[in-house]
Design a protein around this nucleic acid. Structure first.
Length: 271
DNA sequence: TGAGTATGTTCAG
DNA sequence: TGAACCTACTCAT
């Protein structure tokens, strides 16, 4: 599930397995071959994540930028390096582990300046220590656009995808179509804090599990959910037609800006 | 075997 | 707004 938590988790894993070592970088599929040659055999100095973007920083300030898009996936392996299966865009081979990347929307070597350009287009990432929620509030607090649009806009908040959008709006009882400027500072602060919690939890679990009380929220705080311990992990995402875990209303779905939007029309009624 | 689906992004019109 | 793109998986035929 490539939302922000996935990328942060990858950064952590890649740091442990590869940073500080010379890494063999190749592109069995061929589409990344030319760039792979630039970093092949260099020491990986650091791995960083900002929103859904992953950066492998090699010696001599060469940076491999990866964006998984909708389908991209890293797999991590130990032991003998086996012949590539399927379309492997990038293969990293370190001293103890090796990793394959398939299906990314971006996998390219960038200069530091180009990396700055990518990051300049991103809003604050709630998972980062240097995140400045004020920057997100400046955009949301004055926008006529609906929250459903703003939360998915990576230049507003980086790292939130369709699952976290649906879930955080539900957890705060917010109508997805509420204009950003009608949210109010207090509710924004609660949403930001909750996103930081949810994403950090996603990093720990390696999965999105939002069905639990709102810790630092305000207003709508769902009661002990029905689904807890039943193997269910979300309130509304992809639960179209199923009963809301809080009020029993059938979960709604509509297409919003070409993406699926899920919500409970009762718990998230317009305010 | 083929259709359908997906957590994302970019570009053309 | 719709199409295109990258891949793998599930389900129906």
């Amino acid at each position: 599930m490539p939302e922000g938590h996935t990328i942060r988790r990858l950064a952590r894993t890649h740091t442990r397995r590869f940073v500080g070592h010379e890494v063999a970088v190749s592109s069995p599929q061929g589409r990344f071959s030319r760039d792979a040659e630039l970093v092949d055999g260099r020491e990986l100095r650091a791995v960083d994540a900002h929103g859904k973007h992953l950066f492998h920083v090699y010696a001599d300030d060469l940076v491999v930028h990866v964006h998984l898009g909708l389908y991209g996936k890293f797999t991590m392996h130990t032991g003998d390096v086996t012949p590539p299966r399927g379309q492997v865009r990038m293969r990293l081979v370190g001293p103890t582990h090796w990793a394959d990347l398939r299906g990314p929307i971006a996998c390219e070597v960038l200069t530091e300046g180009e990396v700055d350009g990518v990051r300049a287009r991103l809003g604050p990432d709630p998972l980062r220590d240097d995140a400045d929620p004020e920057a997100a509030w400046r955009r949301i607090g004055r926008s006529k656009a609906p929250l459903a649009t703003l939360l998915m806009d990576q230049s507003v908040i980086a790292g939130v995808g369709n699952v976290y959008r649906a879930e955080v709006l539900f957890r705060h009882g917010l109508d997805p179509l509420l204009p950003g400027r009608e949210l109010g500072r207090e509710r924004f602060d609660a949403v930001w804090a909750d996103l930081a919690d949810l994403l950090a939890d996603g990093v720990r679990r390696g999965a999105i599990d939002t069905v639990r009380p709102v810790h630092r929220g305000c207003g709508h705080a769902p009661d002990e959910p029905h689904g807890r311990g039943c193997g269910r992990e979300v309130y509304v995402y992809r639960r179209t037609g199923e009963p809301c875990r809080v009020c029993g209303t059938e979960v709604s779905r509509r297409t919003h800006a070409a993406r699926n939007l899920f919500w409970c029309a009762t718990c998230q009624a317009a305010t």
